[in-house]
Design a protein around this nucleic acid. Sequence first.
RNA 1: GGAGGGAUGGCCGAGUGGCUUAAGGCGGCGGUCUUGAAAACCGUUGGGCGAAAGUUCCGUGGGUUCAAAUCCUACUCCCUCCGCCA
Length: 425
Amino acid sequence: MLGLKFVSENLELIKEKLALRKMKVDLGAFFAMVEERKALLQESESLKYEKNQASAKIAKLPPNQRSQSPLIADMRKVSEKIKGLDARLSDVDADLKDVLMTLPNLPHSSVPAGDGEQDNVVVRTWGEKPEFGFTPKQHFELGEELGILDFERGAKITGARFTLQCGLGARMERALINLMLDVHTTEHGYTEVLPPFIVNDTTMTGTGQLPKFEDDLFKLEGLNYYLIPTAEVPVTNIYAGEILPAEELPKYFAAYTPCFRKEAGSYGKDVRGLIRQHQFNKVELVKFCAQEDSYDELEKLLRNAETILQMLGIHYRVVNLCTADLGFSAAKTYDIEVWLPGQNAYREISSCSNFEDFQARRANIRCKGKGDNKTRLVHTINGSGLAVGRTLVAILENFQLEDGSVIIPDVLRKYTGGVEKIALT
RNA sequence: GGAGGGAUGGCCGAGUGGCUUAAGGCGGCGGUCUUGAAAACCGUUGGGCGAAAGUUCCGUGGGUUCAAAUCCUACUCCCUCCGCCA
């Protein structure tokens, strides 16, 4: 959410910045509401002052004179008036908030302007595309042949976009989760957390999933509870409504959770394989930091996520998402795209974003101390470190051999019980 | 699922209609004293809006009243006991 004051004082800037996101907004009515709000607030407050003064006088009267005091009759009217003004005020406030809640974040100046995916800018690449003396297979062929991915039974148990992982298919998933958590907690300074996988609507609103994107979420019937689409939601909300001592910033958290997404509107996309599932595992990195540090912290978090792919030895590139491709809450996002030889394409495996104070304002996360001792909003940053299912996909496709077996990267072997290769037995 | 109890400032805790725009204590910060520290003493110490005056906030939302932390009501969360249970 953008601040009421900021929006009302920078209508032109907002229009400009949101046009970069291919959004047209009409803020004429907004401005009128801001003016009305101001007037209502002033009148209500001056009447309240009057009322408070009169109340003090009434309190000083001897009890037997109170009921006849003309002040009481006067104040009855004043109170009625205040009630009316405050009711109107809370309507206006609610309308203003509705508008603010549906405005996306403004792109940072370092975000390239663009119309879509093709305008994202490659920032760097790491490693090289592997050479094969044969035509590399896609991960779902490999996985089915090796008996580690069972798409048919997954669909039988639940439905489309659900998968049963077996044997080393399950173990590899667990190994990757452990590797990622171990690296981020012991080498990158993150604190491990295991949050609830179900959250309430306030929490969903705090990070920006609600009210706009309810269609993407699984909601529990008859309850205000939702399955989380990413650990970002519960973890960012750890400090919702709190004021943190500034000296404690930055705070780093790493969390493994399953993620649940409806994938509405993606019909026909990535229908085969693990790429797009309704349920998938992810290790997420979340940071809370002072406003002036957030862009440095974003770069560091991105490097932390890249480390995992470097350890696994898989080629990838980093792209700076253009204005049209930015998510609703983000001011800037880097995607890490991993090379998939079977698909002959780069695919997103991590998305690292700076939300600046957009989520902090919604969730009311502030800090205080240091320097002027003022209370101010923190900045929040997060990124996948990494999407686990897609990492498994990358391993299968990058390390496959001609006979259909797959070499397990060295760094994972201590988590696979020493097993070095996934092969037909 | 049944029965009961509770929610007040960073923490503890007083407060059942009107100088409570919340007593007192602890903790924090500043000071006096001290070679230094401790103790003692003095002062200070929440958030939102506002340039300020001021206004608002005692779990949340409604209500009663000239006036609500205090009364009514619905809800949320926590605790205790019983039952069931990984």
